[in-house]
């Protein structure tokens, strides 16, 4: 997901000085579905896990603006241009809601920006893939936002109040994102042969990376258990991935597209789709910085940030001047 459980090396051991009874009280609150709010006592590991998860989520939204933002100036109709602008704008907004939620845990926006731009922080692997055609915009809305929704709806019930509330807001806005993506694909599939080919090509390139968004298989996800206990994570990676496949295959059938997976087939006994092996080596390479667009994404954000430094300084300087003026006048 946008929160693929990346970077969770469990560096902190539970502090021996953390009062055992406070930990128990905390767990009791979480078990009771009480929300934890910013100034409440929380275990250091809970705080740090959340900071990492929420900031990764925020970074993903911000980086995610780039592959789609690419096509704003080339959108094939004014309506599509307007919709894409609104979608990318929503993504900026989601990033901002999430940075805001993360800041309640004691980390600043500047620190998080530094972590992102220095390459220390991770963001969802999916955004390291290129948008080569207009159909990619459809595929991203349909598959990537579709996958995100799967994860985000349960997070609306996450134990940490500000994160849960941010997710409620995000989910309200997200359903239009998926629908507009599917509509793009639908129209292409009803169009010319060249358009159908464009749609199938986009699906071929985005399907497997979308499945990888859900993170490593449960057998290889060693830190999920604690996150589940603390209600930061509510379903396992494999569960969500299966749900996504089951929901999406019929959608593809409906418009005459085929997933690029020869092993994909309906399993009558299990009531789910069986699907092929994911190439986890590709996933690890992309996470390590060797995806098609990792460098370009980082460069774009670094450039924007450094090119914007004089602007931010000017605004701060002006604000100081105004404050000085009014305190002198007072």
């Amino acid at each position: 997901m946008y929160t693929q459980g990346l970077d969770q090396k469990g560096k902190e051991s539970p502090s021996a000085s953390e009062d055992e009874s406070r930990l128990q009280q905390f767990q009791a609150r979480v078990d009771n579905e009480e929300k934890i709010e910013p100034k409440d006592w929380m275990p250091a590991k809970y705080r740090n896990t959340l900071i990492r998860q929420i900031s990764q989520h925020a970074h993903s939204e911000i980086i995610g603006m780039l592959p789609e933002g690419n096509w704003i100036t080339r959108a094939p109709s004014l309506r599509r241009k307007a919709i894409l602008l609104a979608k990318v704008q929503d993504e900026a907004g989601h990033g901002l809601y999430l940075y805001s939620a993360a800041e309640t845990l004691g980390i600043s926006r500047n620190e998080m920006m530094d972590q992102l731009l220095s390459g220390k922080a991770k963001y969802s692997s999916i955004f390291n893939y290129p948008t080569l055609t207009w159909a990619d915009i459809g595929a991203i809305g349909w598959l990537v936002d579709g996958a995100a929704i799967m994860n985000q709806i349960p997070l609306c019930r996450c134990s940490y109040g500000p994160y849960a509330r941010a997710m409620v807001r995000v989910c309200r806005e997200e359903s239009f994102h998926q629908r507009q993506g599917y509509e793009i694909m639908l129209v292409l599939c009803r169009g010319s042969d060249a358009q159908k080919r464009m749609a199938q090509d986009a699906l071929n390139r985005w399907w497997w990376p979308s499945l990888m968004m859900f993170g490593p298989g449960d057998a290889n996800s060693t830190h999920s258990a604690q996150s589940m206990a603390w209600k930061i994570k509510r379903f396992s990676n494999d569960e969500l991935r299966q749900k996504f496949v089951d929901a999406t295959v019929p959608q593809a059938d409906h418009i005459g597209l085929k997933m690029p997976d020869p092993d994909l087939k309906w399993n009558e006994d299990s009531g789910h789709y069986d699907f092929g092996e994911i190439d986890w080596s590709e996933f690890m390479e992309v996470l390590a910085g060797n995806g098609p667009c990792n460098r370009e994404r980082m460069q774009a954000r670094q450039d924007a940030h450094s090119n914007g430094a004089w602007v931010r300084e000017a605004a701060a300087a002006y604000a100081r001047k105004q404050a000085d003026k009014s305190s002198k006048a007072a």
């Binding site: 805001s100 309640t104 941010a166 605004a315």
Partner: peptide
Amino acid sequence: HVGSLHASDADM
């Protein structure tokens, strides 16, 4: 309360 944001002054 709906959240927070950064700005250089009140108008912004």
